[in-house]
Design a protein around this nucleic acid. Structure first.
Lengths: 158, 158
DNA sequence: GTTGCTGAGTCTGTCAATCAGACCTAGCCT
DNA sequence: AGGCTAGGTCTGATTGACAGACTCAGCAAC
C-alpha cells in the first residue's frame, strides 16, 4: 500500500522552509520572551539561560529573517541601546506559539499546570488554537484532517 | 517600563519543554512525512534528504518521547520490518504542523503557492488554524492575545 | 582627566551534533 | 552459495553549542 505522497516533491515545502527558520531549540523560546514583552538582551539571557553567543546569533538570524526588528531605546543616564520587537511576520507566529503551548500543556506540564496562559483582550477568556475548515466546521479529530497536494505541488522527478 | 513577565520563572515552561522535543530542524519534517502517510525509513530518507544517522536518531527520539510508535510490517518475500505511526500524543501535533504550514505558506511559499494543502474529511474544505477564546470569540489580531501567568506560574527566585 | 558601571557583544577552547560516504546486517529469494 | 534491500552503524571532517573569560562604549561620578 503505497502512500500517494510519495509521488509528490517536497522541494518547495513550506513546512521545511519554516523549520529552517524556526527548527532549533532556542528560537521559539526567544520569541516567547518577546511576545511576553521581554525585549532586551540581558533580560532575555537571564530568563532563558541561553549562552550569550547563541542568543546573539539567534537574534541576528531573526532580524535577518524579518521576524524581529531592532528598535533603539535609551534609559536616562545610559547610552542608546537596542531592543527587539516583532514585525508583522513575527506577530503572525502567535498561532504557532499557542499551538506549541497547547501541546506542551497537555503532555509536558507539571501537575499544577501551565505557567503561561493566554487571554483574549476584552473578555479575558483563555485563548486556544483550533482547526477550522473554510466551510466553518470545527475540526476536532486528527483523523478528519486530510493532507493533499496544494496549488504549488510538483511531481517527483527522482 | 519593566515587563511584568520578568517577575515570573520560566523553569517549568511548557513551550521550552515542547521545543526540547521539537526544536530541531528535522523533527517536524519527519512528522510531516508520517502525517502524509509516509511511514517507512527509506521512503522518508529519500523524500526528506535527511542523512541516515540523523533520521535514525530522530525516529528513536520520537519513539522514546511517545510521539511515534514502531509497528511491524512484512512485505511478501521479505522479513519483518517496522514502520512508524503516530500515537495520540503525536496526532495532537496536527495543530502545530498546520500552524507552521500556515505561516510558511504566507511568508515563504513560491509564487504558485503551497505544495501541501489540508482538507476536512467530508466537506473537503481547506483546514486552517485559528485562535479562539473560551467565550467563543475568534481572535484575529495578535494584539488581542495577551500572555499572563498560568496556574503553574511561579515567582522568580534569582 | 580617570575610574566604575553595565548591557551587549566577541573570543577561546572543549564538546557534541551533523554530515558525506562507506560499510554492515539480516531475512528473504534464486 | 550469492544477490537484494531496508535499516541501520561506523569513520572522519565540519559546524555549532557551550562555559567562561574578555572587550567595548557611552554614561556617571569623582
Amino acid at each position: 500500500m503505497r502512500p500517494a505522497a510519495l509521488d509528490w516533491s517536497v522541494e518547495n515545502c513550506t513546512i521545511a522552509r519554516a523549520m529552517a527558520v524556526l527548527g532549533e531549540r532556542w528560537t521559539l523560546v526567544v520569541l516567547r520572551e518577546v511576545f511576553n514583552g521581554v525585549r532586551r538582551f540581558d533580560d532575555m539571557r537571564v530568563r532563558t539561560g541561553i549562552p550569550r553567543q547563541v542568543l546573539t546569533s539567534r537574534l541576528a538570524a531573526l532580524v535577518a529573517q524579518g521576524v524581529l526588528r531592532r528598535v533603539p531605546y535609551q534609559e536616562p543616564g545610559s547610552r542608546v541601546r537596542h531592543e527587539y520587537r516583532l514585525t508583522d511576520k513575527g506577530l503572525d507566529l502567535w498561532p504557532v506559539l499557542v499551538a506549541v503551548l497547547g501541546w506542551g500543556d497537555r503532555y509536558l506540564a507539571d501537575p499544577e499546570g501551565s505557567p503561561l496562559s493566554v487571554g483574549h483582550r476584552g473578555c479575558d477568556a483563555e485563548v486556544r488554537v483550533t482547526l477550522r475548515c473554510a466551510e466553518g466546521h470545527e475540526v476536532n479529530r486528527p483523523r478528519d484532517v486530510l493532507p493533499r497536494p496544494g496549488p504549488g505541488a510538483r511531481r517527483r522527478t527522482d
